[in-house]
């Protein structure tokens, strides 16, 4: 039971690290700029026009 709990912690920390690495990789690839570019325009589909 103790080792299961330890593996749980390792899995959590691993997933946290993977998420942070993924964000870092996305920023390095300039994906945040794509998000910004889309988010500063009115999305006509989202509001039911386009």
């Amino acid at each position: 039971m103790k080792s299961r709990s330890m593996w749980g912690k390792v899995a959590r920390i691993g997933m946290l690290a993977a998420a942070l690495l993924s964000i870092g990789a996305g920023v390095a690839a300039g994906q945040h700029r794509d998000v910004l570019q889309k988010a500063v325009m009115v999305c006509l589909e989202c509001i039911g026009i386009g």
Binding site: A19, L20, S22, I23, A25, G26, A29, D34, V35, A39
Partner: peptide
């Protein structure tokens, strides 16, 4: 919305940034 944009047509590669953000909060 960002995830759909990042996946749009498969032109932008794997959506690391958006999925990473979602996974972080998850």
């Amino acid at each position: 919305g960002s995830l759909q944009g990042a996946l749009g047509g498969g032109k932008h590669g794997f959506p690391f940034y958006v999925l990473g953000t979602l996974a972080l909060f998850g």
